[in-house]
Simulated assay, not measured.
Amino acid sequence: MLKYVNTGVVFQEIPDEVTLAVNISNCPCRCPGCHSRYLWGDVGEPLTPLVLDGFIREYGDDITCICFMGGDSEPEYVDMLARYVHKAYPKMKVGWYSGRTRISSAVNKADFDYIKVGPYIEHLGCLKSRTTNQRLYKRASGDGFTDITYRFWSGKD
């Protein structure tokens, strides 16, 4: 069972969305230089559809997207939660920040509106760096995705 540690309304994780970021624990990636080491342990509360319902009731129209920050230890469960959100709240977008280089073939990528892939590699930088190995994709028409990582880059580096 996935567990979450905390949540926060964020404005920079998903371009053009007001996003409720759900920080998921028990991260198996353990990237050197990680800024969220507190998520490495198996801590927090179970993340269930009922818990997501509570978040959506609490934040209501103030958010346009829910983004799962982690969950790489149980990708099929993250996928199930994404399907649930889309079915129960058709207007809500769903994102997933994964530290893996590829999404598991057991996951239906079309269940997500946004997917970030790539471990954090300190010398390459985060999404804001033009040298980053990480990529954020937005679902395009059908099951295709478009790389929108450039949206994080400023005009100067």
Rank of each mutant, 00 (worst) to 15 (best):
G118M: 08
S129D: 14
R135D: 02
K93C: 07
A88P: 04
V107T: 11
M92C: 05
K109M: 12
N133E: 04
K91H: 14
Y120W: 11
R139K: 12
Q134H: 00
L124V: 03
P119M: 11
T101G: 14
V117C: 05
A140P: 12
N108Y: 01
K93T: 10
A88L: 02
R151S: 13
G142D: 04
T132D: 06
Y89F: 15
K91I: 05
K116A: 14
T132Y: 00
S105G: 06
V107S: 05
V94K: 02
E122R: 14
R130D: 06
S129L: 07
T131I: 00
I103V: 14
S98M: 03
Q134I: 08
D147N: 12
H123T: 13
Y120Q: 03
Q134C: 06
A106N: 12
G99I: 06
A106V: 14
F145W: 01
P119H: 04
S154D: 08
W153G: 07
V107W: 06
K116S: 08
V94I: 12
V94W: 08
S105N: 08
G118Y: 03
Y137W: 11
V107C: 09
K109C: 09
T149F: 03
D147M: 05
P119C: 00
Y137I: 00
V117Y: 02
R102L: 09
H86I: 02
P90E: 10
R151M: 13
R130Q: 08
K93N: 13
H123L: 13
G125I: 04
Y150V: 13
G95Y: 13
G99Y: 11
S129W: 05
P90H: 08
G99L: 01
Y114R: 10
K116F: 01
K91P: 07
G118H: 06
F112T: 07
N133W: 00
I121P: 00
I103G: 06
I148A: 03
P90S: 09
T131H: 14
N108K: 11
H86V: 00
S98F: 06
K109L: 10
P90I: 03
I103S: 05
I121L: 04
A106F: 01
Y120C: 01
S98L: 00
V107R: 10
A140Q: 07
L127S: 02
S141N: 06
G99C: 04
K138H: 08
A88D: 04
D113M: 07
N108Q: 13
L127M: 09
S104Q: 03
R151P: 01
H86T: 01
E122C: 04
R102W: 15
R135Q: 08
T149C: 01
